[in-house]
């Protein structure tokens, strides 16, 4: 094959790879971004909520497969809502048990951030302590089919992941910008003291935000478990940190920013590994991100908050 054709195929293939990988970052970054937008809280436990989502999906799917003898796609269709609801419950529990009391007491926001970090560690190691050390294999719910377009390989899962990520972004964007509760969320982030005066209960809005963020983390966890079917308690930590980085580079608090940031990070990581020595992947990827933040100190889509003197 001529060199040009191979290069083109490689670029196309890696674009697809990057789209898939970026989808996960985007989905998780959206959760960070929602909570941050409303509360100015970096919910570091979010990566681990996503891990919990993957585990819940695992247990629900294995249970359904073992009990019913249902076909894979039915199991998947049932697993998605159950996982989302259960994981949302976990996210809301965290908010109620750990963050809200601190907020009520008027703690500095960084103390809440560190509490979130601790909650993440509790989730990770609690999982390890209760469920044991063995990694789990996620059952294959839908048979993976490989399509070949010349030298470019595509799987149905890959396409599904990308579609779901874009769909979730559109849904969230609509909720935040078109609905009443979305307006309440924006209002809360704009002025949290004026909100109760307008007759909107802030706690309801906050709980709704956590429900939204956690259920999309669950969706990401489920898709991740299907694409990379080895689950371990620490799977959320690294992805969580990187998704947070993606959310910030996009401009934290902006849904579009988180979405774009996730794909940007995915692209940078994959392309660097693909076309430069993969040994230097982290080095080059983070240098690029550093450079972006240097050029645009409030991220890609972020708007500087003006300060009154």
């Amino acid at each position: 094959m001529p060199w040009g054709g191979a290069l083109l195929a490689s670029i196309l293939q890696n674009t697809l790879n990057a789209l898939q990988w970026g989808s996960f970052y985007s989905l998780i970054a959206l959760g960070y971004c929602l909570v941050y937008g409303v509360l100015l809280l970096i919910n570091f436990a979010h990566g681990d909520v996503y891990m919990v989502g993957a585990y819940i999906a695992f247990f629900v799917a294995t249970f359904l497969l073992a009990s019913g003898g249902l076909p894979g796609w039915v199991v998947l269709a049932v697993t998605v809502p159950i996982t989302m609801v259960l994981t949302a419950a976990v996210g809301v529990t965290l908010e109620r048990v750990a963050y809200r009391p601190l907020r009520r007491k008027g703690a500095h926001r960084l103390y809440v951030v560190v509490t979130a970090l601790m909650c993440g560690i509790i989730l990770e190691n609690g999982n390890l302590a209760l469920l044991g050390a063995a990694s789990r294999a996620f059952p294959e719910l839908v048979t993976t089919t490989v399509f070949s377009l010349g030298d470019v390989k595509l799987t149905n899962l890959k396409v599904a992941v990308i579609v779901v990520a874009i769909g979730s972004f559109l849904i969230l964007e609509t909720i935040v910008s078109r609905t009443k509760i979305g307006m309440a969320m924006r209002a809360l982030s704009y002025d949290r003291f004026a909100l109760p005066l307008m007759g909107i209960p802030p706690d309801t809005v906050i709980v709704f935000t956590f429900v939204l963020g956690s259920s999309f983390a669950a969706l990401a966890g489920l898709l991740f478990a299907m694409s990379y079917p080895v689950l371990d308690p620490y799977m959320g930590a690294m992805v969580g940190w990187k998704a947070f980085i993606a959310a910030v580079v996009g401009g934290i608090g902006e849904i579009r920013g988180a979405f774009a940031g996730g794909f940007l990070l995915g692209f940078v990581e994959i392309m660097v590994a693909a076309f430069l020595p993969s040994t230097f992947r982290d080095l080059i990827a983070f240098t690029i991100l550093l450079f972006i933040l240097w050029m645009k100190p409030t991220g890609l889509f972020g708007v500087a908050r003006f300060q009154k003197i």
Partner: peptide, 27 residues
């Protein structure tokens, strides 16, 4: 960068620097 960048954006810069250092040493 901390002259212009503040808050959580600066947090990312610090994380990125520590990653770069770790990755450099590994190489």
């Amino acid at each position: 960068p901390s002259f212009k960048t503040r808050g959580d954006y600066l947090a990312i810069i610090t994380i990125a620097v520590s990653y770069i250092i770790k990755s450099t040493i590994e190489n």
